[in-house]
Nucleic acid binder design. Sequence first.
DNA 1: CAGTATCCTTGCTGATACTG
DNA 2: CAGTATCAGCAAGGATACTG
Lengths: 152, 152
Amino acid sequence: MAKEGTSRSLGTSEVTVVDAGDCRDPFQWDLREDCEVRQILDRIADKWSLLVIALLEDRMMRFNELRREVDGISQRMLTVTLRHLERDGLVCRTVYAEVPPRVEYCLSPLGKTLLGTIQSLVDWTEEHQSEIAGARAEFDARQGAARVPASG
Amino acid sequence: MAKEGTSRSLGTSEVTVVDAGDCRDPFQWDLREDCEVRQILDRIADKWSLLVIALLEDRMMRFNELRREVDGISQRMLTVTLRHLERDGLVCRTVYAEVPPRVEYCLSPLGKTLLGTIQSLVDWTEEHQSEIAGARAEFDARQGAARVPASG
DNA sequence: CAGTATCCTTGCTGATACTG
DNA sequence: CAGTATCAGCAAGGATACTG
């Protein structure tokens, strides 16, 4: 993965460390892009990460097994996603020196705690789903009306 | 992640609506990309949305005021972000017909509920921040060792 | 001040080919 | 089976110029 390799900065070292004394305000954190929060958020908001985490909740799974379940994902992206998750210590990768090769992935304890956290996010979403849908519809209606006033 | 462009269905109508009855399982939802959850998640995980929401927590702010606070953001992206947030009914936009023009943004009640939710996410992050950093460092160390074995 | 429109770069993502 | 490497496509983000 040459492209990904380019962005060594992903989490390597340039990250600006802020002293805790500065973090008393509830939302001071996200004023900086480099903040950890952004890193994590990017991961869970990743196109596939969430899927994989969710799938791994119940059981440990093999590479192609995950591939089949997620289905839409390409081999490359599954690898990338898994690597990211592994790097963050969210999933564990176990390689069995067998023939044929077998690699199993499972959620780490840390990953499991994240599971609960994202669930609260999901709860919020499901709870306000219709409100948002309504707001969107209304907004689109207004936009449509504003943009096509003389159509009729 | 589910880019809006990927599925033009975002606001239009192609969005597959899943009935709540289908979403009982804690993580059944995220098996479909089109799920509402993904939409919302994409928004709050947006590069800037979170920033704006956080800034708007305390007070209502004007366009350039937000621009200054976020700083890294371009004018275009602030507009786009604000529009998205407005469309989702998360922020309110108030235009004052004055000279010079004045537009103020504030969090909607719905937006405020989201505030609490993302906070839990932040809490998790801050709580496990060091674990992740450690995992990353360890991972990178292993990778580095594997890739540069004969350098010394 | 608060946008809108346009061009350009970046980087994610997927398809393909190859390896152990 | 489980990857790795490379290339091509496209959308998102950023810079710039212009407007009300």
